[in-house]
Design a protein around this nucleic acid. Structure first.
Lengths: 189, 189
DNA sequence: CTTGCCTATGCAACGAGTTGCATACGAGGA
DNA sequence: TCCTCGTATGCAACTCGTTGCATAGGCAAG
């Protein structure tokens, strides 16, 4: 059900089409939520049927027409109700951690390349987040007195940055451990 | 599909019943994966049908009988194949981040209690992880030369600890931001 | 002019995951 | 005696999420 709320927040920040939402979910919102376009289109249809969203056909030049969605008063009410309802602290689902524990029953050294791949991916994401932070919040182009909405977006982005930094440091730890296990105990020991 | 592999790893570390697996998934394995008992029972049945697991009826005294599952050679092969196949770096699904951005369209101060609740939950989890680390890895009771399997379990646990520490620090940041937004700009400004 | 790419939307089928309910045994307390 | 709690397993119904496929317009390169 939380995809509904993520869509409401994103459309309140700026109305847009399903396609645009899908791209946002790959970028800034994807920092903390993911969704494919098929899922988004389906949920958008249901939310319109439920009266949470409005659709407006928008003709475009040089590209296909689009449907722009915006939040109704009813949608704001639903979002507010969710905001006031406590949620459970979420737990991780970390495939890589399963693999690492599974490596005990296979060759730990075979995992090194995989972990390095993840390490690179997280370094890339961190660089991407930092560039976004510079552009939108800390750089010279940033709005001098940020609005509450911008402050909140910034603190969420700082969370993404902290997550990537932590993950990179942990993957360093994992790599060191895998190398230690791959190298048999030295003769000087 | 990854629940299958998490179950294989857990049963290789120690054979057990569906009920025991469900409790492990609430504890150590739950650090990086979650599953309800219904889901586990269903998957166990399918994996037995596929020849990945063996069942053994075990009579117990003072409590109902149980079915103990263990991994077959075929199960080990399937796990090894998965270990050698690259996976995508996973992305977060953080409900609380959606709420924080959503607070821009509601009362940011109303979120403070919710964030404090999560803060407490993560501090509790951190304490729980640290106790487990002391007990199993760094304390005087820990095995002097750890096996590769224990080293790998430890590095995964260190990941959980790093995640909780990072999250707690971030929630401090979030709380400071929410308090700043809740307090109107002071007269001395 | 065909091929591929980007924008834009959507269906159908399947698999993953959640929620509610049901059963059954044994132990302990009201 | 009945009620509740912990152990132990499972069905049924539903929603969530993924994968594969299909359509369609415009643009640019070969």
């Amino acid at each position: 059900m939380a995809l509904d709320h993520a869509i409401l927040v994103s459309l309140l920040e700026r109305p847009g089409s399903g396609y645009e939402l899908a791209r946002r979910f790959e970028r800034s919102i994807g920092h903390f939520w993911t969704a494919t376009h098929q899922q988004i289109y389906r949920v958008l249809g249901r939310m319109v049927a439920d009266g949470l969203l409005l659709v407006r056909e928008v003709e475009q030049q040089g590209r296909p027409d689009k449907k722009e969605y915006s939040v109704t008063a009813s949608g704001r009410t639903v979002l507010a109700a969710w905001l006031h309802k406590p949620i459970e602290p979420e737990s991780l689902r970390h495939d890589l951690a399963v693999k690492i524990r599974g490596a005990a029953f296979d060759d730990p050294a075979a995992l090194i390349q995989e972990v390095e791949r993840h390490h690179r991916a997280h370094r890339d994401r961190l660089a991407h987040y930092l560039a976004g932070e510079e552009r939108d919040f800390t750089g010279p182009e940033a709005p001098a007195p940020p609005t509450p909405g911008q402050e909140l977006q910034h603190v969420v982005l700082r969370g993404g940055i902290a997550y990537e930094r932590m993950t990179i440091a942990w993957l360093d730890d994992v790599l060191a451990t895998l190398h230690r296990l791959a190298t048999p105990p030295g003769p000087g020991s």
